[in-house]
């Protein structure tokens, strides 16, 4: 087995008198889509920010491509929870700004053309000249997605990117992201608390207990065949077992498992389960 693309090795986040999470280990393989599921306050966003290089752990290290992450990198793009578009720029200029950061030598015309292509890819060809305030929530997040994919990162990090959207828009964007990640052969890591979203997108789902002292309690292997389609997903055999397992975890076990781990718990290898068979 090859070494994982991203390897999280014993990271912790501690404040005086409070340990949010401690000794967290997991890996994300090249081309794999991993979802992290857990309740608020377990440090999910902190873990994503550490992977992005925006934050540093109190202890432990994270390796990306074999090198320690010491800061943000164009190799790892982030799709933010609140789209984080610059409101003074049009959709096209927002994407062009990102492209300009990666390709320092490109002139304005080349940046504009590339930004257009990136926006057309997410179905926003008609909204190029619009400012974020003139776009709907779903369209704003589409621009955020186009911006992240435009720089062609090796890894895509997503912090509950669709949680503010209505169900219909969310579904469309989930499939969009799934398609783009697969097309580009990218590695992806997403935080979510939408169980269906995790089942639709993830190859593996990390379940975190509640904080403080949060940990990865188990790793759920998603064995449902790919490509998965939202419309038919819930008819697939094994779907309900998978969904029930994660729901049970979120409703009860995330709470009952919190705190001191059981004696046979190995933080480097949390138990793996595949409820879908």
């Amino acid at each position: 087995m090859s070494k994982p693309y991203v390897s999280v090795e014993g990271i912790s986040r501690k404040f005086p008198g409070l340990t949010v999470f401690d000794n967290v280990w997991f890996g994300v393989n090249r081309g794999e889509f991993v979802c992290l599921v857990g309740h608020s306050g377990c440090g999910k966003t902190t873990i994503l920010n550490i992977l992005a290089g925006l934050d540093a752990p109190s202890g432990g290290v994270v390796l990306a491509d074999g090198r320690e992450i010491s800061g943000p990198s164009l190799e790892r793009a982030v799709i933010f929870q609140g789209h984080a578009l610059m409101p003074w720029l049009t959709a096209e200029q927002n994407v062009a700004f990102a492209l300009g950061c990666k390709h320092k030598g490109w002139d304005a015309g080349r940046l504009r053309d590339a930004a257009r292509r990136a926006l057309e890819k997410v179905g926003l060809g008609a909204a190029l000249a619009k400012k974020p305030s003139e776009l709907s929530g779903g369209m704003k997040q589409r621009v955020g997605i186009a911006r992240a994919f435009a720089v062609e990162p090796k890894m895509m990090l997503m912090d509950e990117p669709f949680s503010a959207l209505d169900a219909l828009t969310r579904g469309a964007l989930q499939e969009e992201v799934s398609r783009l990640v697969t097309e580009a052969g990218q590695t992806a890591f997403m935080i979510t608390h939408d169980v269906d979203e995790a089942i639709l997108l993830a190859d593996r789902i990390l379940l975190m207990t509640n904080g403080p002292m949060a940990r990865v309690a188990e790793v759920v292997i998603n064995t449902l065949p790919k490509p998965r389609v939202r419309a038919t997903l819930h008819h697939q055999p094994g779907y309900h077992e998978l969904r029930d397992h994660i729901m049970d975890f979120l409703i009860t076990r995330s709470r009952t498992l919190a705190g001191i781990p059981p004696g046979d718990y190995d933080p480097r290898h949390p138990p793996e389960v595949s409820p879908a068979g």
Binding site: L54, P72, L74, V78, A84, M86, W88, F97
Partner: peptide
């Protein structure tokens, strides 16, 4: 903070961040 984070993940650099993000904001 999120605009600054966008600039950081894009490795925008100090001057680009100052003139293209902070100044217009």
């Amino acid at each position: 903070r999120e605009w600054l984070n966008v600039a950081r993940t894009l490795e925008a650099g100090t001057w680009r961040t100052a003139f293209r993000v902070i100044l217009p904001a």
